[in-house]
Nucleic acid binder design. Structure first.
Lengths: 186, 186
DNA sequence: GTATGATATGTGCGTAGTTATATATGCCTG
DNA sequence: CAGGCATATATAACTACGCACATATCATAC
């Protein structure tokens, strides 16, 4: 279960509530790991049971109380253990490639539409990396205590850029081959 | 559930047993979709219930009987419907990137080891694509009835090559930056 | 003869993740 | 002052998937 370790890593920067964690996911690691709220709350409960976290309840009159989670010594140890272990290799699952593989049974226009959809999503991601994510990292890098982390965040950003660039290029090449077929051997 | 549609696509080439399907997965789409045997058998049962498949039991004295599945009219319709629908976008999950993101908390040698591990796996994949997969596709392309399909299989192979190439390059760049840190700002 | 691997079928249990739903408040906009 | 959005907590039901186990035969290698 990597989700608990992702949470361990994030809470290690600073304590947070489940709701805040979701927001942190959204603006940092959600490009390569994400979770929805129910899952986060349940995982926080599990981690509490294992002694990786401790919780401080902030009672606020009338409003629902906040539960601020922070990493315990055992949690920090578990984080270090997990970081040192060789990363799991999840089986790849790509529905678009599946549809391309069986592409002979789709009419060309529809398949081309699928490819353009993926192309556009990754072109938008590339723009977002430049406009939003890169400046965000630079901003954090300027803060005391985060300079060391920012170097690693940049590595993951670099991966994102290379991946999306590659997807855009491949989609273009595939579109050219599918469309080009009409004149070619078709 | 894309697995049932992957199976639909494969059985549409030719009828097969669950065991045979597993082998077909292994030498075709397992680079972007895979399943283990229990999952395949269970899914075949579900698909049978939905009327997408029909089964012919081959009794063989003594030995366990073979169940050969083939796609029904409803199954072919469902396959076409699914192929035309915009592909689902699965949330990305990459444990290695997660570890790189939190890389400041790992010692450099360990993180470098993780990166070399990924690099090597994809370098091996690249070699396998050239030596094994590309010739296999060319072989099928020569067969009557499969020439049209082979063009699409090649597109997915092209994706695999670009992806693995990209991973190797990124790992090299990341390793250089992590190792280079020692002289640099470290 | 005995062990291993390929062929062939599954069940049972556990984990991870998604969607729908329930509850409650504060704040801002129209 | 009504509606929607952000904050904040969760449970229930469901789906997908993976691992361990159970069973049976044949062919081949040692």
């Amino acid at each position: 279960m990597s989700l608990s370790h992702a949470i361990l890593g994030l809470l290690n920067y600073r304590p947070a509530t489940g709701y805040e964690l979701k927001a942190v996911f959204e603006r940092s690691i959600h490009f390569f790991w994400n979770a929805n709220l129910p899952q986060i709350y349940r995982t926080l409960g599990d981690m509490l049971d294992r002694g990786w976290l401790e919780v401080k309840v902030e009672h606020r009159d009338g409003r629902p109380s906040r539960k601020v989670y922070s990493v315990t010594g055992a949690g920090r140890e578990e984080l270090r253990r997990w970081l040192a272990a060789p990363p799991e290799v999840p089986p790849p699952r790509n529905p678009l490639l599946l549809k391309v593989f069986f592409g002979r049974q789709i009419d060309r226009a529809t398949l081309a539409g699928h490819l353009r959809g993926w192309r556009d999503r990754h072109a938008a991601l590339l723009a977002r990396y430049d406009r939003e994510i890169a400046p965000l990292i630079r901003q954090y890098a300027a803060l005391a205590g985060a300079e060391g982390d920012a170097r690693y965040w940049e590595l993951t950003l670099d991966f994102g850029r290379r991946f999306s660039r590659m997807v855009v290029d491949w989609c273009d090449a595939a579109l050219a081959r599918i469309t080009g077929e009409e004149q070619g051997r078709g």
